[in-house]
Design a protein around this nucleic acid. Structure first.
Lengths: 335, 335
DNA sequence: GTGAAAGCGCTAACAT
DNA sequence: ATGTTAGCGCTTTCAC
């Protein structure tokens, strides 16, 4: 089923059929109707492959994220979709599993479709990935993180700053013996940067982390419970725990509530992400909203404007301010 | 940057360059190395658009789901990715927002890229969508649900049966005054079918739902709390609440625990989905595992085998058995 | 083992 | 307002 078939069925040249189907150029109402009728009757679905080859226009935007298991990325995606829905552009998703080699493969695969733009998570990429992206001439928006050098445009928050601000707030509340629970971070650069900003801010205050606990694999409430129990057993004097994300933080919170650990007086807690999930828990965990949806929206807007030619500059830089929410677990009542 | 550039740079014909880059046919080791070196040096990325047009082979699989906000779909995706990672196929994701018209648009867009297969959620589609899919000649796998007529292959669970089995288990535990809390279901067919199966099984037992509460929009713990409070205020005699998903069920559970409602003695609870989240809560909500990841895997396997030609039959049908987990909220201790 | 020619299904550019 | 021609960058097919 090709344009030609529609052309023959409607007695109109292929070119005019093409014009009708794309709403391009002047076509008489009569011809238009004839063509549309024929196309519908035949169940014609255009071949974008041929169209893209002929026009060198591809209305696809490559979106490359580590995984969808981490609820952060579905939310970013939803921001991206929201904006692209009002444009001819369509997101195409690829996953890296947090592995640079896989990112490279996925990127290569994606670029071979000549998308109109690339949105990818993080600033850390293999040399080959960076080279490919630069050579592609396509608008590239790196998202989530602003601590580092961008290839082209970048939209995100500073995770170092997020860590620092959390640390300062904790110290300001008078907490003194601070522990940390988080993922092993060889490849989770954003978690690593938060940790670094956190320890750095503590150091400025002449403090350091008293105890820490790292884990591998996904984050779940259960793991938060276990590790919280473990770290408190080993270091019963801790009066604060900073978690690298809300999920394990929420697990820790539940454990504390059940085991009579007075939160936030005896022990303060904070997570990271501003996950919606936290809203219905017995107490609100302190967290920091990373503005994921807004990041998705902003990145999509940049790509859309660059792709449409409305925006010709490159290298846009948008750093959102992380928003600390004290919830019920960080504000220590004065004794 | 085209094949021709690589051809010129390496002094080898375009055809041979193409063979090297695709590992097709016999090429001498010398030529091979020359070509690879040139390609790498130039940073050549093949143009799949041209390749696909010439070969009429597209290693893309269209995956169409309502949204990623519902954690069910990221999990299905992860099953799909897992299987496709071992094949040349790549998933391309599209969202319908639970709207048939949007599904139609997305489908049209996707089919215009001539993918090697289509995986889409649910059995309910517009007539136009069904027509497109049938006319495409592409392997189609409908997932999640098996209650209805499939276009081609189908992998999922029977949501009617899921509802029925939950109802039977509830009755068997001696609960008598049963309420329901769930989404308004004009378009969530699977939730609707569970509800229908549920009421149907109760009816067989001479019972009906005593009170119900429907909500719109996303599911969150908070909503589960509110609606649980509301329904119990209105119908304090309820001794069981069936929720249309785990998220609101978990919210209800938390509310009950905090408000001294004895679970599961005074009030039993059950959700649906088998969400991992439930694992770390203070008590385990009864739920039914829908095997999302396995559904994704099985669907991807069918597409991969059909695309590779290893499987020529159409219309595969795989109904998984939903697995009821009693947790701590459905098994009533004998008094 | 390598190359030349033709063509995939469309659209840009230029007629008319 | 409509048609004609050429060609997008590859792969298929056939020749050597």
């Amino acid at each position: 089923m090709t344009l030609r078939d529609v052309s023959e069925a409607s007695g109109v040249s292929e070119m005019t059929v093409s014009r009708v189907l794309r709403n391009r150029g002047d076509v008489s109402e009569t011809t238009r109707e004839k063509v549309l009728a024929a196309a519908k009757q035949l169940g014609y679905v255009p071949n974008k492959i041929a169209g893209a080859l002929a026009s060198s226009r591809v209305n696809l935007v490559a979106v490359i994220v580590p995984s969808l298991r981490n609820m952060v990325f579905p939310e970013v995606m939803s921001g991206i979709s929201e904006v692209l829905d009002d444009t001819p552009l369509q997101p195409v998703l690829g996953f890296t599993d947090y592995r640079p080699e896989k990112e490279e493969d996925v990127l290569y695969e994606m670029l071979s479709w000549r998308p109109s733009g690339v949105i990818l998570a993080g600033l850390e990429h293999s040399a080959a990935s960076r080279a490919m992206l630069k050579a592609s001439g396509i608008p590239v928006v790196e998202i989530m993180d602003t601590d580092g050098e961008a290839i082209d445009a970048v939209v995100g928050i500073s995770h170092r700053r997020a860590g620092r601000e959390t640390a300062r707030a904790i110290v300001r509340q008078g907490y003194e013996s601070i522990g940390f629970i988080g993922t092993k971070m060889p490849l989770d650069h954003r978690a690593r940067k938060r940790f670094e900003g956190f320890t750095e801010a503590l150091a400025k205050d002449g403090r350091e982390i008293v105890d820490q606990e790292f884990y591998e694999g996904g984050s779940g409430l259960l793991k938060g419970r276990e590790l919280t129990q473990k770290i408190l057993q080993r270091s019963p004097d801790l009066d604060f725990i900073y978690y690298s994300n809300d999920m394990i933080g929420a697990g820790g919170l539940l454990w504390c509530l059940e085991n009579g650990v007075g939160v936030p007086q005896r022990l303060g807690l904070a997570g990271f992400n501003g996950m919606e999930l936290l809203d219905g828990l017995p107490a609100r965990l302190a967290t920091m909203d990373a503005g994921r949806r807004e990041i998705g929206r902003a990145a999509a807007r940049i790509v859309a404007e660059r792709a449409s030619g409305a925006l010709t500059e490159t290298g846009q830089r948008l750093e959102l301010a992380p928003n600390l929410q004290y919830g019920d677990t960080l504000r220590r009542p004065k004794v």
